[in-house]
């Protein structure tokens, strides 16, 4: 983009700032009314998208991917080779899933995912990101002090474990495969999936073992 165009973009931002309603709910209302009047939007379709990302597409999908990878080594191999193909096998293909890479935690490695430049996230398998994932607090510290960030969420990473931070700077999206906790050897996929938290698939949580007693 030319500097002229960037300058024009900045000028439109400033003009909008002085003219749009000051409360976000009023800005959204005005935008929706305008788009409907322009023939660009059906309000019922807005309801349908909200419902699908509230009820259907969320971290439960990622948890099923993880539980299947824990129980089916052949699936796990396919998932590592091509994350997008792996989630498509389960019918979870979708938004930001086109270049998915699954990174496994091991006793020696812990993975953490961030997008320092915007808020890239594997929506197809984790749904709507938590707000903290999109904040300056998380985006600034995840690459510089990942151990401190994970400690803030309540897990300590031992000194001899290597932390790998994945900064999503391109269109590749990352999903962490947490370690399967001990004591779950005879559990089926559905029961295992209930153990898997959203944060463990972002990497801000490491130890799922504390949840085993509740499974």
């Amino acid at each position: 983009m030319s500097e002229d165009h960037s300058g024009r973009i900045g000028a439109i931002h400033r003009e909008l700032h002085s003219h749009l309603p000051s409360a976000p709910e009023l800005r959204v209302k005005a935008l929706e009314s305008l788009l409907v009047e322009k023939g660009l939007l059906d309000p019922n379709t807005v309801d349908a998208w909200i419902e699908v990302y509230t009820e259907q597409i969320g971290p439960k999908r990622g948890a099923e991917v993880v539980a299947r990878a824990w129980t089916d080594p052949a699936f796990r191999d396919r998932l590592f080779a091509d994350g997008t193909a792996g989630i498509t096998e389960l019918g979870f293909e979708g938004w930001a899933g086109g270049h998915l890479r699954v990174v496994p935690n091991t006793p020696a490695v812990h993975n953490l995912v961030v997008c320092t430049l915007c808020s890239c996230y594997p929506h197809a398998v984790l749904g709507i990101p938590p707000n903290w994932y999109k904040t300056a607090a998380y985006r600034s510290r995840a690459v510089r002090d990942p151990r401190g960030v994970i400690a803030e969420f309540g897990d300590a990473i031992p000194d001899d474990v290597e932390v790998r931070v994945w900064d999503s700077t391109a269109e590749v999206r990352y999903l962490v495969l947490p370690e399967r906790p001990a004591g779950t050897e005879d559990w089926d996929v559905a029961r295992l999936a209930r153990l898997v938290t959203r944060n463990s698939m972002i990497g801000t949580e490491r130890d799922l073992g504390r949840l085993v007693g509740r499974g």
Binding site: T116, L117, I128, W132, T135, A137, R139, S140, F153
Partner: peptide, 20 residues
């Protein structure tokens, strides 16, 4: 371009789980 910037404070680790 926030990576490594300092001074943004703690993360809201107790955010409610609802997507919106």
């Amino acid at each position: 371009d926030l990576g490594g910037r300092q001074g943004y404070g703690p993360i809201d680790v107790n955010e409610p789980p609802e997507p919106f």
